[in-house]
């Protein structure tokens, strides 16, 4: 972080300390403790054991940082899927508070390998909705029949 104006901009978030062993100056970053992680996955069982197919990004870390996860999932699968190869469970049930079966839950965006491109017609609608302050109206359309 040396050389970044972000240090001075966020004195409550970054602090410089001396390493207690070497005396070297180190930048420490305040940790965040999210109340919930909201994570969309391809597969979860009814207990909240979740598999992420393809790129996982930092969702593994987020789930641990919060310790409380709300999952939406493309589909509910049998627990045997996790038992086949436990390593592939990205998020274990003990960190999960709720599982919602929500196919298409990442639309109008992308969810590998289910849908691979952004729906740009919907994206234009979203951009317009942001501009006009009509995001809830856009939400009603996207969630029709799901609430």
């Amino acid at each position: 972080m040396w050389g970044s104006d972000l240090l001075e901009q966020n004195p409550d978030f970054y602090k410089v300390f001396e390493c207690p062993w070497t005396g070297e100056k180190v930048v420490c970053v305040r940790s965040l403790k999210p109340d919930y992680s909201l994570i969309h996955v391809q597969e979860a069982d009814i207990y909240g054991n979740a598999r992420i197919l393809g790129p996982a990004y930092q969702d593994w870390l987020m789930s641990r940082a919060s310790g409380k996860v709300i999952l939406t999932t493309e589909r509910i699968v049998g627990t045997y899927r996790m038992q086949e190869e436990p390593k592939l469970t990205a998020i274990p049930h003990l960190l999960v508070e709720a599982v919602v079966e929500l196919p298409g839950g990442a639309k109008h965006g992308i969810c590998y390998p289910e849908y691979l491109t952004v729906d740009f017609d919907l994206h234009k609608e979203y951009q317009k909705a942001v501009k006009n302050g009509e995001v809830p109206k856009f939400a009603e359309k996207m969630l029709e029949g799901r609430l």
Binding site: G54, P55, Y112, L116, T117
Partner: peptide, 12 residues
């Protein structure tokens, strides 16, 4: 690659 996004499965 089929998109300019560099987060797709193309680099996975």
């Amino acid at each position: 690659p089929y998109s300019a996004s560099t987060l797709t499965e193309n680099t996975y």
